[in-house]
Write a protein that binds this DNA or RNA. Structure first.
Lengths: 261, 261
DNA sequence: AGAATAGTGTCTTTCAGACAGTATAAG
DNA sequence: CTTATACTGTCTGAAAGACACTATTCT
């Protein structure tokens, strides 16, 4: 590589080693999934949903025995995002899933192995994608935890608690302001399902007239649309209820909100 | 440093150099400022405001002669955020200013000097803070450009065009959804000033009944409050208008928006 | 008086929020 | 017939949006 070190602003150091360089830049991924568990009741009902995080128990130094985020070091030939995508695929065996950048974690001393600058991502995957991992990789213990368990009961490696907390806040924010809810729903869904998904991720979200508001206010038009068959007849589902409910899908429109209007 | 490389997930490399490590992790800063220019009219009026970006013309390889974001390499003893803060202070000579993380830029080959992973920030500073830089540093040419100039007319170094574009989008988003407008305003301001600041950053923002909405709708209560003197009498300003206008200040409350409610 | 900016009155349409009532289907 | 979920009717008060009108000050 040609080097010319007269620039007084940015001094790289790959050959001269005049300056210390980082020992590695891993991509760590907070992998969220929404589990679905049948409720054993007499009548049809929505399943119980829970937001969970996948963690891996470390087997070696440092932080041996503690739970950590899956991750891997970035290579020179790829971008950080590509590294995260590769890692996500390695963990799930699948290409799918929503992957988004979260932030950088670089506090000095955060990793005893050296100067390690973590780039954090979060992913939304489906539950079955994680079963692959649990089966395939016998080398490591894999666990699915609720956020509360992960944040309060587990011993977490490095600063991974901070990362998980930041990811949790971000996903809550995004759940209310973007249409990522679609990542947790089938193509067609009922409004009760949507409401449940939102509430699972953001328990504070309460909206007594949810169905009414979605269906009848003009400013919400365009986020969702009714699903109809070829003849234009509305499509229903009674999978989770006695009375069939109208099915909806997301459009690709998401409104831009403002605190001033 | 003790090293134990049995972990098959994360392999650092500071001593063994078995793996290639990055050649440097700089913090690059998109420094925005809102310039104020008096309009030469007969009557009192609001000044002309413009959103500008500070850039530095590079003097040496690589990208010599091109305009680039100010930035500097992170040291092992500091976090990325601290590096950005240090850089901001070096550029302005002042500790103040709003500094926020933007994202990571790591496309392979983005910097001909090697494997350089940029961490981008954006800062909101006041115009006078930049004058310091222009005077003090005779070594480098400093320029203030509008976003349009920066994005369309200038030859920009590395992938700094992408970074500036991302920063611009983010600041527009933040202007509508948070109260960063306060970074561009004095402690006390009139609603016309606020409206002008928002429109300067987000030209699409149009709100004919702006004053009415801010002052009379309950959901906006709490973002702003009227400024009053010790006796509880409303404080006015006629700095920019014939008729005195009520002064406001931001509270520290910012509402959380949702596309569903 | 005229100009320029700050704000108010008023009217219509839409939305929010509450809560009772009806609709559809399963057991 | 009961129960459980999915809606709809209806009413009140708040907010949006438009536009004419008044208010305060400077020249």
């Amino acid at each position: 590589m040609v080097m010319n070190m007269t620039d007084n602003e940015q001094k790289p150091n790959s050959n001269t080693k005049k300056y210390r360089t980082p020992d590695g830049v891993p991509a760590d991924i907070v992998m969220f999934t929404l589990t679905k568990r049948e409720r054993k009741t007499v009548t049809k009902t929505l399943p119980i949903r829970e937001l969970k995080v996948m963690l891996i128990r470390r087997r070696s130094w440092p932080c041996a025995g503690m739970w950590a985020l899956p991750g891997g070091f970035c290579r020179e030939s790829e971008s950080i995002y590509d590294a995260a995508k590769r890692e996500l695929k390695e963990e799930t065996g699948v290409d799918g899933g929503h992957l988004e950048y979260l932030g950088v974690y670089s506090t000095p001393g955060r990793d005893p192995r050296g100067w390690i600058i973590s780039q954090a991502f979060y992913a939304l995957v489906e539950e079955w994608m994680l079963e692959h991992r649990q089966a395939a990789d016998d080398a490591e213990e894999v666990g699915l935890f609720t956020i509360e368990e992960a944040l309060e009961e587990l011993e977490l490696a490095f600063d991974h608690r901070d990362i998980i907390l930041d990811a949790y806040r971000k996903i809550q924010h995004q759940m209310l302001q973007t249409t990522i809810a679609k990542q947790f729903l089938p193509e067609h869904f009922t409004l009760s399902e949507l409401y449940q998904v939102i509430q699972t991720v953001v328990p504070e979200f309460k909206e007594p007239n949810f169905i009414r508001k979605i269906t009848s206010t003009r400013s919400r038009q365009g986020i969702l649309e009714e699903v109809r068959d070829e003849n234009g007849k509305p499509l229903n589902s009674n999978q989770y209820s006695q009375r069939p409910a109208q099915l909806y899908r997301f459009t690709d429109h998401a409104p831009l909100l403002s605190i001033y209007t």
